[in-house]
Design a protein around this nucleic acid. Structure first.
Length: 290
DNA sequence: GATGCGTGGCA
DNA sequence: TTGCCAAGCAT
């Protein structure tokens, strides 16, 4: 297969076009990398940048965060979305202090055991923060490989064994090169080989891209369900959380009623937030961040 | 394996 | 305008 021809062009392209991101700088700590990865789960870089900066200033080490109430993490999370990630990051910091002497572990298995850290994040932190050799397979990498190697516009809904094997076969032998390869392919997917409107004219491997050579055939896999929003529990939970984040004093139930007209749904969502530990009930009908 | 989980920007 | 998308994880 000519896939080895992908390496040099993509590594060279990354060397020239990579973004200067705080968590990529030489002085960035493993904690900075871990925080960035949690924040970047389903959230664009542009929105992560300011929150990541203030987060690291306030909590430069896992121990600093672990010493705070979880509600402070949820409040500082702001509007990044999926606030349960803030809870998981706090729990990860607590576990790092309790089980790893306050140092972010460097091994994949130890990272994977941390709350909020799955296969992708464990591989990414081990690779980016510690220079380990791993298969780092996120949505960007999956898309780049689906096109360059697999001849399709988009990857399938679920990660297949064949897809993982193909990605593994492309990882350079040398650990340091493998780590650069991982971030380089991700960056290519983020900046050039984008989900919509890919900039093939700027792509370093356009000449050998199977999808392009096939004439850019449109995605023909199973339909991808657009996530509903209006009227969903997610929207309702978001409204409730916004009120609690913005108030530095406990909030009475009556103040929450104004945010959502459907009482049955609002009550159910509030109970769900309490069950999720995103909200604490501090007195009858009074709520606050935990 | 499918589903639920926030938020905002952009074409 | 509105659908689609953004470095996933846990259940």
């Amino acid at each position: 297969m000519p896939t080895s021809d992908l390496h040099a062009p993509i590594l060279d392209w990354y060397d020239e076009h990579q973004r200067d991101l705080p968590w990529r700088r030489p002085e960035a700590s493993p904690w900075s990398v871990l925080v960035s990865e949690l924040m970047l789960q389903q959230t664009p870089v542009a929105r992560v940048l300011p929150v990541h900066e203030t987060w690291l200033e306030r909590w430069p080490t896992p121990a600093d965060l672990a010493a705070e109430p979880t509600g402070e993490a949820v409040r500082a999370w702001g509007r990044l979305g999926y606030p349960r990630r803030a809870l998981r990051l706090h729990a990860a910091a607590t576990a790092i202090v309790a089980e790893h002497g306050g140092q972010v572990p460097s091994g994949y298995d130890d990272l994977l055991a941390l709350p909020g850290v799955g296969d992708y994040t464990a591989a990414a932190v081990a690779s980016f923060a510690f220079g380990r050799r791993h298969v780092v397979l996120d949505t960007n990498v999956r898309r780049v490989l689906a096109r360059a190697v697999g001849r399709s516009e988009l990857p399938g809904r679920s990660l297949t064994r064949a897809e993982r094997d193909a990605a593994a076969a492309l990882v350079p032998d040398d650990a340091a090169t493998a780590a650069t390869w991982a971030v380089a392919v991700m960056e290519l997917g983020a900046l050039v080989c984008t989900a919509t409107g890919p900039r093939c004219e700027a792509c370093p491997v356009a000449e050998q891209c199977a999808w392009r050579l096939a004439g850019h055939p449109a995605y023909d896999g199973p339909p991808r369900r657009a996530q509903a929003w209006d009227g969903t529990d997610r929207q309702c939970r978001g409204r409730l959380m916004a009120v609690l984040r913005e108030s530095h004093a406990p909030v009475h139930r009556s103040a929450l009623e104004a945010t959502w007209p459907d009482e049955e749904q609002r009550t159910r969502c509030l109970a769900g937030l309490v069950a999720d530990r995103l909200v604490a009930q501090v007195a009858p009908d009074v709520y606050a961040l935990p």
